[in-house]
């Protein structure tokens, strides 16, 4: 009986030890990046956000954007409508983003002055988005496989217990030479991201307001400080709804051609 009991505890110990070892082994840089990428955020989202652009003299410009997005497996379709300012009002973007790094994204732009839709390059995701300090890549979901991820360690930042993650783009022509992210262990949100090019630090993203909406962690306020051009952008979520059940028809070019959501 004693032998049987000892064997049972031994097996339980071995099982626990092997599981722990497996978890530790998996929790490398890529695993942390996957946790960030796959953070639950519903099947679709509808949000209104305000982007405040602040230049070195403190002058501000404001962009108000309505955005809807929907997941299709690991791919995503999103549509954006600019409500403000007046000179870009009703400008719309449609993008179909693919997780497969070999599959270029599809993107279309609707300019109200031209009243027509134009396909734009899906590859230039490192362009700054409408004068902000966010690139198209920053505001979308970047495929995990576009970077090589290394777990640098664990660190506490602004009260968040974080994994410190370094991500180096596979593509040497990428806008960033590397990124260092501080990933909150609870929410799996990168609460601080430092972006570097070959000459050094170019911009810093900091999360200022992180809250749960239902079961989903949501960033309500973030700031992208572009130290290389003394410019920053504050991104504030004015409203957000998850799992609205939006139909596929919204994410078609025909919606852009109509000029409204």
């Amino acid at each position: 009986m004693s032998i049987m009991r000892n064997m049972f505890f031994f097996l339980v110990f071995m099982l626990f030890a092997s599981c722990t070892a497996a978890v530790c082994a998996e929790l490398d840089g890529r695993a942390v990046a996957m946790l960030v990428h796959d953070r639950p955020d519903g099947e679709d989202r509808a949000q209104v956000c305000t982007m405040t652009l602040i230049n070195r003299r403190g002058a501000t410009r404001v962009r108000k954007v309505e955005m809807r997005s929907k997941d299709y497996g690991r791919d995503q379709k999103s549509i954006m409508l600019f409500r403000e300012p007046a000179d870009v009002k009703d400008t719309m973007f449609l993008s179909w983003s693919y997780d497969d790094v070999t599959h270029e994204d599809d993107r279309w732009l609707y300019m109200p002055a031209m009243k027509s839709v134009r396909r734009i390059s899906g590859a230039s995701k490192n362009e700054y988005f409408m004068g902000t300090d966010f690139t198209y890549d920053d505001i979308g979901k970047r495929s995990v496989d576009k970077d090589t991820h290394t777990l640098l360690g664990e660190e506490t930042w602004e009260g968040y217990d974080c994994w410190k993650l370094e991500s180096i783009p596979v593509d040497p022509d990428d806008a960033y030479a590397r990124k260092v992210s501080f990933v909150d262990k609870i929410s799996h949100v990168a609460v601080r991201v430092e972006y570097y090019d070959k000459d050094g630090l170019i911009k810093i993203l900091t999360i200022k307001d992180l809250r749960k909406v239902g079961e989903f962690w949501t960033v309500f306020l973030s700031e992208m400080d572009n130290v290389s051009r003394s410019h920053k952008t504050v991104l504030q979520i004015d409203s957000i709804d998850y799992d609205t059940g939006v139909g596929d028809e919204l994410f078609r070019v025909a919606t852009l051609q109509r000029g409204r959501l």
């Binding site: 396909r119 390059s121 590859a123």
Partner: peptide, 11 residues
């Protein structure tokens, strides 16, 4: 017609 290829869009 139009189609993209890397940084280009051909029309």
């Amino acid at each position: 017609f139009s189609f993209p290829w890397t940084d280009f869009v051909f029309r």
